[in-house]
């Protein structure tokens, strides 16, 4: 039941995230000034915190979505299997989120101010 609630919660969170994506695309279409404004907002500390939350919600929803697709194909319904896949999804979504942000920092140097 916990993963079901989290799936719904993360879905609602991602609905908000999709609006940010649209905002970003709109800014990109409006020219450099608007784009830098929006990027400044997203790159600020609260902006980064919100983006981190969205990343976590995205990975959880994505992975738990895979779990749902496996169920819909008729597999993984056993009590023990579904409990194990629940833990797997929760742990993996956390790991992937941290991995993505680490890659963003160390590999892509995507944080504001990292590249002069």
């Amino acid at each position: 039941m916990v993963t079901s609630i989290l799936h719904r919660l993360s879905g609602i969170v991602l609905a908000g995230g999709s609006l940010i994506l649209v905002l970003w695309l709109w800014a990109l279409s409006q020219g450099e000034k608007r784009y830098e404004q929006v990027m400044g907002l997203l790159g600020s500390f609260p902006g980064k915190l919100i983006l981190f939350g969205f990343t976590l919600a995205l990975f959880f929803h994505l992975l738990n979505g895979v779990r749902h697709l496996v169920w819909d194909s008729g597999h993984g319904y056993e009590k023990q299997t579904s409990n194990q896949s629940a833990w797997l999804v929760m742990i993996l979504s956390l790991v992937l989120t941290l991995a993505l942000w680490s890659a963003g920092y160390w590999v892509f140097e995507a944080f504001p101010g990292q590249k002069a």
Binding site: L28, E32, Y35, E36, M39, L58, L62, G65, V66, H68, L69, L100, A103, G104, F108, E109, A110, Q114, K115
Partner: peptide, 25 residues
């Protein structure tokens, strides 16, 4: 739609990371 997103999201995430590290142009 879930399947489409499952295929596209990892690719787009990668692109966005690269995008954030490079400038507007």
């Amino acid at each position: 739609t879930a399947l489409v997103l499952l295929m596209l999201v990892p690719f787009v995430l990668f692109q966005f990371l690269a995008a954030f590290s490079s400038g507007y142009e």
